[in-house]
Amino acid sequence: MDMIVRTVAKGIVPFIWIYGAYIILHGHITPGGSFSGGVIVAAGAVLLIIAYGTKGAEKSLHEDNLHLLEALAGAVLVFLLLSEMFFRDYVTVLMGYFDIVSAGYVLLLNVAGGVMVLAALITIAYMFTRR
């Protein structure tokens, strides 16, 4: 695309990503959580794909890495959710030590779910723009 579009996209995408990460990480206090935060991060990545084309965006977001990231995030999510009744008390006490008040298990699950959502949506965006 045009040089103006590329420069502006290059400058603004980190802010979009930070905002998306904020929504994912604060999912246990403010409204949001993994689904909306993952969508926002994916929207920033879609802006990169539009500005730089598929070949340009592949230099930073390669598709095989996304598949592997999704598989690992899915594995972590399944492990966390299915072992919850053993570890919940320990995690709540642990989060209290680090002064992350009112977090508990929900914080870890939000992060894992958010990574899975963003990997899935960026892969779908690649599918649709690769002709």
């Binding site: 999912g27 246990h28 206090i29 403010t30 409204p31 959580g33 959710l81 919850e84 919940r88 995690v91 709540t92 989060m95 009112s102 977090a103 508990g104 298990y105 929900v106 699950l109 939000n110 779910g113």
Partner: peptide, 19 residues
Amino acid sequence: TGSANVVSAIVWDFRGFDT
């Protein structure tokens, strides 16, 4: 649960399997 947001607690903890 340790979470002040009840919606997040229901979605991720009480009914985490549905999520």
